[in-house]
Design a protein around this nucleic acid. Sequence first.
DNA 1: AAATGCATTTGACAATTGTCAAATAATGAA
DNA 2: TTCATTATTTGACAATTGTCAAATGCATTT
Lengths: 186, 186
Amino acid sequence: MIFEKLENVNESDLANLLADFQQIMKKESFSKKEMLHKEGTICNHLFLIEKGIARSFYHKDGKDITAHFAIENGTITAIDSFIQRKRSRYNIELLEDSEIISISHQDMHKLLQEKPSYEKYIRLFLEQIYIDLAERIEDLLFHSAKERYEKLVKNTPNLLRRVHLKHIASFIGITQETLSRIRTQT
Amino acid sequence: MIFEKLENVNESDLANLLADFQQIMKKESFSKKEMLHKEGTICNHLFLIEKGIARSFYHKDGKDITAHFAIENGTITAIDSFIQRKRSRYNIELLEDSEIISISHQDMHKLLQEKPSYEKYIRLFLEQIYIDLAERIEDLLFHSAKERYEKLVKNTPNLLRRVHLKHIASFIGITQETLSRIRTQT
DNA sequence: AAATGCATTTGACAATTGTCAAATAATGAA
DNA sequence: TTCATTATTTGACAATTGTCAAATGCATTT
């Protein structure tokens, strides 16, 4: 799940971590279109998608822009707000009926204070998402809209089948019309 | 310096941290055009710029693309390589004669193992650079080349005066010619 | 100061993507 | 099934940015 990609870690330490995290995880069912977080408020939770799809989005010049998708086993939050404890410009909504596990900021930080050795895993998590973001920047800078779309088709075909094209379009930084034309070409 | 932006931290803990980090920092002078890191190798150092300018760049279709600049008080490294311990596609070169402080990956991790409480500061550092990166993505997605340039002029006029325009151009994802035209318009 | 090598600008034109409006297609509710 | 709503595609055209080649400007070395 959240720590699944980690390598080179102490097995027993990780087992403890997972057990402790279990304690602060809350599982809940939500239905499609429900909001996990609303813009203008501070985001107090990190969400893990057990089943379903969520997307974070914000408004730019009246347009709805998707910033991130999370499907099964993925995580989502209004990360800047969660980190900096300030109001968020992001919304998080569910695109399907979902099973969500949430971890509150408060609980997580309490746990980190009690067991500072867990800081390491948060660091590893951050390193991972940092690298993912860096890759996204390169993608935007050096691949055409068409290449970005094709990469998505290749890497996350499952996602493509499950979300509206307008969200895919804004996610890769193009208009819906351009995406439509890209798709019909080929 | 590296931890200067941190808020809400324990003062004495931070003082200890700084003292310990001092121990593993090595200061060196380099002259313009020297390389702090070369692509194809694993990057073993985090560099702090005490004086001067460095840029990281890589090659894409034969073109030289600037990924990041660091001036006085900034940090630079081939972050993906430094984190994942794999060979880097990035180079780091100096654009002026510089005074550089370097911290080796090994020393840093040894320090973190000895004093796991410092993990927290690394996490805070990562949070900060993650947010900076996220901002850059928004910038690329929703601002025109002209807006991106003007933002740079506003935020880091000092940088603009000190580096070649071709580097600025690739940094904001446009060609040198387009940047030139943007500049002469206004 | 002249010569050389870069850096920057300019021109002409092409490719990519965006905008706005309208037409179809698909979906979900009654 | 039918209707209403929403999603997707298409068309015509405009704006932005890229490409390639050449000209100009600037700075460093001799």
